[in-house]
Design a protein around this nucleic acid. Structure first.
Length: 582
RNA sequence: UGGGGUGUCGCCAAGUGGUAAGGCACAAGGUUUUGAUCCUUGCAUUCGUUGGUUCGAAUCCAGCCACCCCAGCCA
């Protein structure tokens, strides 16, 4: 997809691209606005783990660059040392690579532009566009006014540039305490847009930074930093979510009040021929999915309260969690593509996500049989010493994936729910005196139900019709097919079944306490004595499987070595049985 | 009572004045040694609402309604 000539988005004569962002880019390309360049960026703050919502932005930025033959940077927007850490930097990089995206050149950090940012601030002060203010944070809030009332000018608003310049230098030198002074843009305290009421550009924070360590004690704010960082990196299209819409005028104000040549000189392309063009911000709706939530505060509460196994618990909407659950990069990318990008806020049905992973795994996951809740079956006419090694395909439709050997012995396990003494209407599995097909093997008939003293079913005695391997039985129809595993040859494994983490379709807790009430108490079921066919544990057999009739599973590599293998159920198979699911 | 946005099928989402794409979900058939997959078919006379302009409106205009965002020295 790197060849722009080969691409639908830019191919001559191609249909108009769909979606407002692609249309905008095509328009910009057609008008030559950015010299024919497309350069995007994904700009996370390293203050937490990435979740599926971030994936939407990642996919958007990287695929747009790819489609238009442009580039996409990874830039850590690290202007607040109090909340950030190297751990998050590392995990974010790891997640992006896992999704299959490669950023342009080296990883960027806003913090590596602190020098430029400082000089640009001096420039604004020199032009009378910024001033050092001595209002305390509390006072600043009072002066700001309200949504319906204009603010009041700071008493320091008229400070001479020379004086502000000197104070700003002393702020940097560490002569003031946190919060004592700030640098503010001089815009309009009565603007109906609160972001324009002399926003803070720099604040004092005597704190070490994960990248710049103790070099700075003043840190630029997001609004001041983001636009300039985009300009330095020659970003053409700066995409962000809807809540930043009101910040766009400030984004533009800062850039337009700086000397264009000085911006150009600081930029990556300073030595090139192209006409310097300022980046432009465009907003889109963030991703929301039913039965889950992206709010970091609430997710953290669930993790810290031990309601889940950690940030990578397979029930979590984090990329780390989804990865451990068995979601594939392709499924997440396809999902993001299917969801689309628009400006209306929507709640995507989690069924779309489930469809994306089923679609990928149905095509690519090898099949295996695993009995989750075993019921012993003795095949009375099968020799006790005999091991019949059946050859089954790994995938029903893809011969190239090869075959597997499945051992059949006198004693096997079947699923408890595949036998019923009191079958509901339409039951297609085994009943007393009835017949069923063992998947990939023979048809068996249930001759006897063996019980314990309490009347519970202990085992089934069945007889094999040896004339049914690979062919239909004579003179009758056997509809049901069930999975099974040799009791002697099978491997005991542990399985974790997951359900949605939240009970409500649109969980919107108002407090941390409310979050816990909304957590699904049955979101995890652990099963211990499951029986898995042996070849699924052989080296090189892969980590993703479809356990036939029960769902798609992913080997959990965090399980202790030596202990039984653990498989997480990524997603169940679609179930279209007439009544509801059992 | 300020400003900025958004409203098209149950859920996403195309559509930019010429008579409502697609996906998910759902439903009905067919195939099937997975109640899976696959295949076929069906699924908005109508675009928040009320008016207006026009030969023609989801698209243009006006009013109304609903919902979302903004008063961190967070991003």
């Amino acid at each position: 997809m790197n060849d722009s000539d080969n691409n639908s988005a830019t191919a001559p004569g191609a249909a108009e691209p769909s979606g407002f962002i692609r249309q905008m880019i095509s328009r910009d390309l057609a008008s030559g606005k950015h010299g024919g360049r497309v350069h995007t960026r994904f700009p996370p703050e390293p203050n937490g783990y990435l979740h599926i919502g971030h994936a939407k932005s990642i996919c958007l930025n990287f695929t747009l660059a790819e489609e238009y033959g442009g580039h996409c940077n990874l830039r850590f927007d690290d202007t607040n040392p109090l909340k950030e850490s190297q751990e998050f930097v590392d995990s974010i990089k790891d997640n992006i690579r896992w999704l299959g995206f490669r950023w342009r050149g080296e990883v960027r950090y806003s913090s590596s532009y602190f020098g430029h940012l400082y000089e640009f601030a001096r420039q604004l002060i020199g032009k009378g566009k910024a001033y050092v203010c001595a209002l305390s944070p509390e006072q600043a809030r009072e002066y700001r006014g309200t949504l319906t009332e204009p603010g009041m000018d700071s008493p320091w608003r008229g400070r001479e540039p020379e004086e502000s310049l000197e104070l700003f230098a002393r702020m940097r030198a560490g002569e003031f305490r946190d919060g004592e002074l700030s640098l503010r843009a001089k815009i309009d305290m009565s603007s109906p847009n609160i972001n324009m009421r002399d926003p803070i550009l720099y604040r004092i924070r005597h704190a070490d930074h994960h990248q710049t360590e103790s070099q700075w004690c003043i840190y630029p704010t997001y609004d001041y930093t983001h636009c300039i960082s985009d300009a330095i990196e020659n970003i053409t299209h700066s995409l962000c979510t809807l809540e930043f819409e009101d910040h766009r005028p400030l984004y533009d104000w800062i850039l337009h009040n700086l000397d264009l040549d000085s911006l150009r000189a600081a930029s990556d392309l300073s030595d090139s021929e192209y006409t310097y063009v300022l980046p432009e911000q465009t907003e889109f709706a963030k991703l929301r999915i039913s039965y889950t939530m992206m709010g970091k505060r609430f997710l953290r509460a669930i993790v810290e309260e031990g309601r889940v196994d950690g940030w990578d618990d397979p029930r979590m909407p984090t990329l780390a969690g989804m990865r451990r659950r068995g979601y594939t990069p392709a499924s997440i990318r396809n999902f993001c593509e299917a969801v689309g990008v628009a400006r209306s806020e929507s709640l995507v049905d989690i069924g779309m996500l489930e469809h994306a992973i089923r679609e990928d795994l149905d095509r690519n996951a090898p099949r295996a049989m695993c009995v989750l809740r075993p019921l012993k079956v003795v095949l009375s006419n099968f020799d006790a010493e005999r091991v019949e090694r059946l050859q089954l395909p790994r995938h029903p439709k893809r011969e190239e994936l090869g075959g597997r050997e499945v051992p059949l012995t006198r004693e096997i396990c079947i699923e408890q729910e595949d036998f019923s003494e009191d079958p509901p209407a339409g039951f297609k599995r085994l009943v007393a005196g009835g017949e069923v097909r063992l998947r990939g093997a023979y048809v068996i008939r249930c001759d006897e139900v063996v019980r314990n003293a309490g009347g519970g079913i202990v085992e089934l005695r069945c007889s094999v019709d040896f004339d049914t391997l690979g062919k239909r039985p004579e003179g009758r129809k056997v509809k049901g097919v069930i999975h099974w595993v040799s009791a002697a040859e099978g491997k005991r494994v542990k399985v974790r079944l997951y359900d949605r983490l939240f009970l409500s379709e649109n969980p919107a807790p108002k407090s941390v306490e409310e979050v816990f009430d909304g957590v699904n108490p049955d979101s995890l079921v652990e099963l211990d004595g499951c029986m898995l066919e042996p070849c699924a544990l052989e080296d090189g057999s892969g980590d993703h499987f479809q356990f036939e009739r029960t769902g798609y599973f992913f080997r959990d590599r965090q399980a202790h070595s030596g202990a039984a293998a653990v498989f997480n159920r990524t997603i169940s198979l679609r179930d279209t049985r007439k009544p509801a699911r059992t």
